[in-house]
């Protein structure tokens, strides 16, 4: 008996967003990364193919991070002290693009220098995060945006209390922005509206719903992402931005990934567990609609890449 498979017909779709600009497009990148464009819930190829597979970004920092897990220090080694070296290793590890996280210690000059050296070291498109303090973010990101005019960087992170300066400089210098709201569909949407109302072109916004890690509230992020995706497909223009998520950051701050001693035996082998933690957090977010996942460990990158490969060509 042939079954008729029910197919959803959606009026809306996810916007297509391209990060990075080649020399022909006014930048210096060897390649660009295009994400989004989905017209179905993730990977339902019986309804429509996945136009752009999710991209994997590796997070590096402008200065050697002192608070990262020893497992990460072990795998990245001395490169962590030099953003250019680190960027190269990340490219070798399979990154589609890079996140460069600036720190509070950076002056605007330091920030520009770090960005330039990373841009010089690899041809990958780049996302630049401020250190997460409003005034400092604005100061560093304005300098970076101007110095890298035309590169189609993603500048982050815009939040509801601090978005105007970052959006203005991104608009003026041809960059994109990452809009982060704390695990809430409405707050995500509201921030997207505020940013759009400033005149930011809609193909230059990525939304970051904030996800939490496995075991630390990830299910809320998971559901928020499913709801954002559904709303987008239903035609809500203010949720149709591709989603960027940070399972690397989330997973590696958990005790399960970070700590190797004094933990229950039932947690098993530290390194294997840490990588599972990052991988499974990332996989769950990919299943719920992530377009860019930012990771930290090369092994997780490999596994998530593999999984994405199986999902996009069924």
């Amino acid at each position: 008996m042939p079954i008729e498979i029910p197919k959803d017909k959606w009026p809306g779709s996810i916007r297509t967003v391209t990060i990075g600009a080649t020399s022909a497009e006014g930048g210096t990148r060897a390649k660009t990364v295009t994400v989004g464009g989905g017209t179905t819930m993730p990977y339902l190829h019986f309804e429509a193919p996945t136009p752009n597979k999710p991209a994997i970004a590796i997070e590096i920092k402008s200065r050697k991070p002192e608070d990262w897990s020893p497992l990460l220090a072990e795998v990245w080694g001395a490169a962590m002290a030099d953003p250019a070296q680190w960027a190269k290793k990340a490219e070798e590890a399979g990154a589609d693009l890079l996140v460069l996280a600036l720190t509070v210690e950076d002056s605007p000059e330091d920030a520009v220098k770090a960005v330039k050296s990373v841009l010089g070291a690899t041809g990958l498109p780049l996302i630049v995060w401020g250190p997460g303090q409003a005034e400092k973010d604005n100061e560093l990101l304005v300098a970076v945006a101007e110095a890298a005019k035309g590169e189609r960087l993603v500048l982050g992170i815009c939040e509801d209390k601090n978005y105007r300066t970052i959006v203005a400089t991104a608009m003026a210098n041809g960059h994109l922005v990452q809009a982060r709201a704390p695990m809430d569909v409405n707050l995500s949407k509201q921030l997207n509206i505020l940013i759009s109302d400033m005149g930011m072109p809609k193909d230059r916004i990525l939304m970051d719903p904030t996800t939490g890690a496995l075991g630390y509230g990830m299910e809320y992020g998971y559901s928020v992402m499913e709801r954002l995706r559904l709303a987008a497909l239903q035609g809500d223009a203010m949720t149709q931005f591709p989603m960027i998520v940070t399972p690397g950051f989330e997973a590696w701050k958990t005790k399960e990934a970070k700590v190797g001693e004094g933990i229950p035996e039932a947690w098993g082998d530290w390194k294997a567990r840490a990588i599972h933690w990052e991988t499974l957090t990332a996989l769950a977010l990919v299943e719920s609609g992530a377009d860019i996942v930012v990771l930290r460990h090369p092994e997780s990158v490999k596994r998530v890449k593999d999984a994405i490969g199986e999902l996009v060509v069924a």
């Binding site: 809430d184 509201q190 509206i193």
Partner: peptide
């Protein structure tokens, strides 16, 4: 949910 969406 309804409250946060109306908080705009």
């Amino acid at each position: 949910e309804a409250f946060t969406s109306a908080l705009f």
